[in-house]
Design a protein around this nucleic acid. Sequence first.
DNA 1: TCTGGGGTCCTACAGCCA
DNA 2: TCTGTGGCTGTAGGACCC
Length: 336
Amino acid sequence: MDAFFAAVEQKRQPALIGTPVVIGGSGDPTKRGVVATASYEARKFGIHSAMPLKTAYSLCPQAVFLPVDYEAYSRESQKVKNILRSLTPAIEDVGIDEAFLDISAIDKPSEDISQRIKKEIKDETGLTCSIGIAPNKLLAKIASDMDKPDGLTVIMPEDVERILKPLPVRKLWGIGPKTEKYLKDMGIETVGELASLRLETLVDRFGSSYGNYLYHASRGIDDSPLITDWEPKSISRETTFQKDIANWQFIAKTLADLTREVVTDMKDSSFKARTVTVKVRFSDFETVTRATTIPQSTDREEEIRKAAFASLKRVEIKKRVRLIGMRASHLERTGD
DNA sequence: TCTGGGGTCCTACAGCCA
DNA sequence: TCTGTGGCTGTAGGACCC
């Protein structure tokens, strides 16, 4: 979906159409938070996802800043996914606003299928999306990114090398800021240059798993399957304080609150957990985690809170605290 | 100065055990 | 009985995704 959160807000408030809209945090750009989505109008000012709201505000003070309303976006997302599901059950959700579809079993031209998807989504929700068609997920994702918004891009097998070669390495799924910098220091900036490296070199530098991945991804090779259903591996909550704090009582109270929320989530989705991890981020962004595993999985709040505090006690609070988080893992389904 | 929240996967290492 | 090895589990940290 194109600038999904911003597009939903612009649909709700048509007065916002054509104006810079920034969704993120509490919607107050003087408070802590980052940009979740910026409308295309806001992107012209250099605003993008993951940017601190304060930075976005300084780039474009006249933008409309709104809080994230997940419930509203989820409702629109459901409508879109229902349309996709009516086409094929071979669908993999990728977050709230993306999905992979395996359309190889549908006996129609790919472009026709895509146009139909676009029309139905537009008619049903008023929103636009960008579609990529390719022989695998890696390339489909790149294709969907090539023509936005409201785009449609097809990558045929014979075009793969020509299209991939000049792209910056950052365009490959799995290459983030750290790997981009690392590669740049090696003199590698494009996918073509990455593809010129020997497999042994990549495995040497990045380890077996990631090295192999980079070797194949740079050639457009990806045999990863469509994941149609999966079980969560962890359930977590974390919160960043508006101001860094030193008061242990307040940290403890926050951890107890987060624990209650996680346990509610666990019960709602019928999971018990065996491991509880507490995360503490200090004012200088140093982040530590401490985990406690109990013998029997449980969804009882007292037990989970006990494990959380056992973990917290093992963190030396030597600086002001910026964030506290709590995660339950080693999940197991309960009987019901 | 600024750097959210909810996740996944990978690596490295330590302890236990066969 | 001692030592090495390899698998498994738990822990901690880091990179990446939306």
